[in-house]
Computed example of a mutant assay.
Amino acid sequence: MHSLLSDSITLQINALQDMQRQLTTTQSDVLMDLIQRQSGQIIFSGIGKSGHIAHKITSSIKSLGINATFLHASEAMHGDIGPLNRHDLAFLISNSGETAEILALQSQLKRRDIPIITLTRNHTNSVAMQADLNLIAGSSKEADPHNILPTSSTTCALVMGDAITIAIANYHAFSKTIFANNHPHGNLGLNALKPLKTQLQSVPIINTDTPLQRVLSQLLSGHQGCVLVGSQQQLQGLITEGDLNRAISHNPHHWQNIPAKEIMSVNPITLNDNHTVHDAEQLMQQHNINTIVIVYHNNTQHISGVYTRIYRKKI
């Protein structure tokens, strides 16, 4: 079973890498030109599993505050194509590029002079050859043993769709404020833009000669998972539970009297208190850490507190 799972993941990674290799600078430039020329709505369409991918991409673009619509290819032939015009931009997803409903929709879009970008597995299929731009965003090798389940193909379409979303966001000068405003009941909307200074936790501050026995006592007395080394006016280092555990593991018989300065992180990651929770989360992800020391924006040597993932879970 492990091999089956691992092989499936490998096949999808390979499909993504192949897709990336086939994306050219010229294609990217044409894509951005079409996005910049569009003044109406952005349309995504697909059938079956490709339709689900189109739905997701449409939803992501809507969260940017941009007019986007999912168009069901079959329903389009029964009136839903009515409002569309040449100011719109259409993205059609079809792995094979031979889906009858997508071909029919493409024909109607072309009659209305609507620019069409297609996401398919090659450049030689019927859908791709009639497009203003075709992007390789599919695969002829699915990730299941029978090569029939939409897996690698839908993964490629989703990743390319997300890349397109990011390109659109960049062109429209999208910001985290817009995203949060469009997600008032989501975790991002509720927490991402909170001032970091309102979410801080105080932690014990010890000096560099404090023995680890005392450090352990300080760690156990709180729930922040760390202690700071130095003073309120001068940050010298940081000790986390992980640092202490490693010290005990390496010195199981005499760890108690080791001074804090021997195991502390001398240059802990810091952020000033003018930033937001979103900024802190991004920085923690970037450095793969769970704790950031927050300093005052007008004096980066003075400690304001810490922001930790441990504390975040309690908010």
Rank of each mutant, 00 (worst) to 15 (best):
T210V: 04
L89M: 01
S74P: 08
V30G: 10
Q130T: 06
S28D: 11
A163K: 00
E241I: 10
N298G: 15
G237K: 02
K194H: 09
S96I: 05
A169L: 14
G82V: 13
E281H: 09
Q17H: 14
S140P: 04
T58G: 06
P211M: 06
V30F: 09
Q22C: 11
D144E: 00
S217H: 11
S304C: 13
I61V: 10
N245I: 13
N14V: 08
T300E: 11
H55T: 08
Q232V: 10
D113T: 08
P150A: 01
Q27M: 05
T276E: 04
P115E: 00
N170M: 10
I269M: 15
S175G: 00
F44I: 06
A104V: 10
S94I: 02
H250R: 13
H52R: 04
Q38T: 12
I294P: 14
V229Q: 01
G225A: 04
S45F: 01
I13R: 05
Q233L: 12
E75Q: 01
Y296C: 02
E142D: 01
K261L: 14
H87E: 15
V159A: 13
I42D: 02
S304F: 07
M160G: 06
G51D: 05
S45L: 04
V203Q: 02
D29S: 15
N134W: 07
H185F: 12
Q106E: 05
R214T: 12
Q301A: 06
T198V: 10
L64V: 01
I61D: 03
V203S: 02
T208H: 07
F44S: 09
N267L: 12
V127G: 00
F179M: 06
T308N: 05
S304A: 15
N245P: 07
Y307T: 03
M160E: 03
Q301K: 05
H297W: 15
M19A: 09
Q27V: 08
G82W: 09
S140K: 10
